[in-house]
């Protein structure tokens, strides 16, 4: 078993008062709580802080922790001193006397100890216990979200054995994601979480869907946006161009005089919606100049510049702005 310094994790002295421990926990929890923190390591840090606090806030668990000794470095292998488990034995984890510390995590050990907060909770031992909910972020390709897919999830989850001993175990799940997921959407898969105990319901699996960036399409809900680059002469004269969609390319007629920023809508060419039907695809016109002009192209542009009476900035001197 690896040693963890819960006092150092919470930034308090070993003789800190219960109030000082609580204050320090609250300060750190506010900083690193995964629901409010932007720190990429926030979740990991919060788990360490919460684990330390769960043990140190309970006088009995704290006493048990203190009796482990303090002469270890964090991460160092250690065993509790002789007689430790007899002293802190409860009806759950150490009852059979055959308990091995070797494959235990310190957090699982203390989660198994019935602390002061559980006095009189003996009757709960026969109550149904719902299984834990699992919450995971799943990254999907746009195409997979559109068609529906199956994902393999590798989780590390707390699991209690028949005698109430809790330990983290790897859990592999296959989750089927029906078509219709969009970026940021959440999905609940009933009964796919931890197993319930004593007749309690199984927990649920919550999936937070994140769509991988696509080289062409940008999702907004179930609609997709695509930049449609046009050469200046295509925008001015009109053209028929090929536009990619999730279901292959479609031809579209761009009308003459199409300005930059105009949106062309392709109904039903967006992402599949969960309840049926598809979102729309919007192609946004961009007018793109050739990166380099050949001599003939330059000549033609110069001729156009001399010939045209068009003033795109006429409204700077009181005229009406041009549409688009």
């Amino acid at each position: 078993m690896k040693y963890k310094d819960y006092y150092a994790t919470l930034g308090v002295a070993r003789d800190a008062s219960a109030d000082a421990i609580r204050d320090s926990y609250r300060k750190l929890a506010r900083k690193y709580h995964p629901d409010v923190s932007r720190d990429p390591k926030g979740e990991e840090k919060f788990k360490e802080i919460a684990e330390a606090y769960q043990t140190l806030k309970d006088p009995e668990k704290r006493a048990a922790y203190d009796r482990l000794g303090s002469g270890y470095q964090p991460g160092q292998d250690f065993r509790p001193p002789p007689g430790w488990e007899q002293q802190f034995r409860r009806e759950g984890p150490f009852g059979d006397g055959g308990y091995s510390f070797d494959d235990l995590d310190l957090s699982d050990l203390f989660a198994s100890i019935q602390g002061a907060g559980h006095r009189g909770a003996r009757s709960r031992a026969s109550m149904p216990m719902p299984g834990a909910d699992f919450e995971v972020t799943v990254r999907l390709a746009l195409e997979d979200a559109h068609r529906g897919t199956q994902v393999d999830l590798n989780l590390s989850v707390p699991e209690a054995d028949g005698e109430g001993r809790v330990r983290h175990v790897p859990k592999n799940l296959k989750a089927r994601i029906p078509k219709g997921a969009s970026d940021g959407q959440r999905l609940r898969l009933r009964g796919q979480g931890g197993k319930g105990a004593r007749g309690g319901r199984d927990g649920d699996l919550y999936l937070n869907i994140v769509l991988d960036p696509h080289p062409l399409f940008r999702p907004s809900g179930h609609d997709l946006y695509l930049d449609l680059p046009l050469a200046p002469w295509e925008a001015a004269l009109g053209a028929t161009v090929e536009v990619p969609t999730l279901a292959g390319t479609v031809s579209v007629k761009v009308p003459p005089g199409t300005p930059a920023g105009r949106k062309l809508r392709f109904p039903g060419k967006g992402l599949a919606r969960p309840g049926g039907g598809d979102g729309d695809l919007y192609a946004i016109v961009q007018i793109v100049n050739p990166p380099e002009l050949g001599s003939r192209e330059r000549e033609l542009f110069r001729a156009l510049a001399e010939e045209s009476r068009f003033d795109p900035r006429g409204h700077f001197s009181g005229g009406k702005p041009h549409a688009g």
């Binding site: 909910d133 029906p178 219709g180 959407q185 959440r186 999905l187 609940r188 898969l189 009933r190 009964g191 319901r201 649920d204 919550y206 969960p274 309840g275």
Partner: peptide, 25 residues
């Protein structure tokens, strides 16, 4: 039905008070 297993957590779907209590803890 699929709804018994899979619930899209968006405005289109609805949950009862008891179901919400179960989901939110």
């Amino acid at each position: 039905a699929e709804r018994d297993f899979v619930l899209w957590l968006d405005a289109r779907e609805q949950v009862s008070l008891v179901e919400l209590s179960e989901c939110a803890g």
